[in-house]
Amino acid sequence: MTALLDVESLLGEMCDSLSAHLATKNIKNPCVIGIRTGGVWLASYIHKKLGVSEPCGELDISFYRDDFTRIGLNPTVKPSSLPFETEGRDIVLVDDVVMSGRTIRAAMNELFDYGRPASITLVTLIDLDGRELPIQPDIVGQKMSLKENQQVKLKGPEKLVLEVTEK
């Protein structure tokens, strides 16, 4: 059984919420950074929709994961690309799914190795139950709970499709 969610509609709502959030904080030129892989696809969409002048950044947090020694290296590790200074900048950090908070913690650790941002706004398409760390997204497309035998996967990048499948 596969359930598909309307990613395009969720992204439109997320961009509206993010624009309002940034205006409230008086942030005029944020740096948009996606966490590989799904977060990069979403960040690209958000980047275009917001009309941000600088290129979109990409993080590969593989070496920053706290389970790196246990699970080993992801075979598709690529270098992160941040084509701008992060020191003192307002960052919009984008991931496809936030669950335990560990991926976001790893991403923030990597970001701080590049410089100390002025702020980080966390944006996610899906917010799942299962938080292990006190990390909460600022902008959420949809909050979900999965059954023990379900998983969620974002497919793309041309047409973004979110699938909820049985394991």
Rank of each mutant, 00 (worst) to 15 (best):
T37K: 10
D138F: 09
V92I: 06
I27D: 05
M108R: 10
L154S: 10
E54G: 03
V94P: 09
I91F: 00
E110K: 01
L11I: 04
N109P: 04
D16S: 10
H47C: 03
P30V: 06
V140E: 13
P55V: 02
Q151P: 01
K25H: 12
I120M: 08
P117G: 11
S53E: 14
L154N: 05
P134E: 10
E132G: 11
L146D: 02
D96N: 05
S100P: 06
G57V: 05
S145N: 15
D95C: 01
T121Y: 04
I135G: 05
V52H: 02
I46M: 09
S100Q: 08
L128P: 05
N29T: 13
E110L: 07
E85A: 12
V152R: 06
I33P: 01
S17H: 00
V161S: 07
K153G: 01
Q150W: 07
L146M: 07
T103P: 01
L162Q: 03
H21F: 06
I46G: 00
D16H: 00
C31D: 07
T24I: 11
D16Y: 11
K167R: 14
E148H: 08
T2K: 09
L82R: 04
I91H: 01
G101H: 06
I61M: 09
V164K: 09
E58Q: 12
A118G: 11
V52S: 05
I120D: 02
D127K: 12
E110P: 11
L160Q: 06
K48D: 15
L59G: 10
K143N: 09
N109F: 06
G12V: 05
E163Y: 13
F112R: 15
D66I: 03
K48M: 09
T103L: 03
I91M: 05
S62T: 13
N109T: 11
G156L: 02
L18N: 08
I104V: 15
G101R: 03
I71A: 02
Q151M: 12
V98M: 04
V98F: 03
T165I: 13
S44T: 12
G141F: 04
P117S: 07
Q142D: 04
A3I: 15
L22N: 11
S81V: 11
M99K: 12
G72W: 01
I91S: 06
H21Q: 13
R116N: 06
P79A: 13
R36W: 07
L5C: 03
G39N: 02
P75R: 11
P137A: 10
P75W: 14
L160T: 00
P83M: 12
E54Q: 15
M144C: 06
E8L: 09
Y114W: 12
V161P: 00
K155T: 08
N26W: 06
D129Y: 06
Y45P: 04
G51M: 13
Q150A: 14
R131C: 13
R105P: 04
L122M: 04
K155V: 05
K25G: 02
L50P: 01
E110A: 03
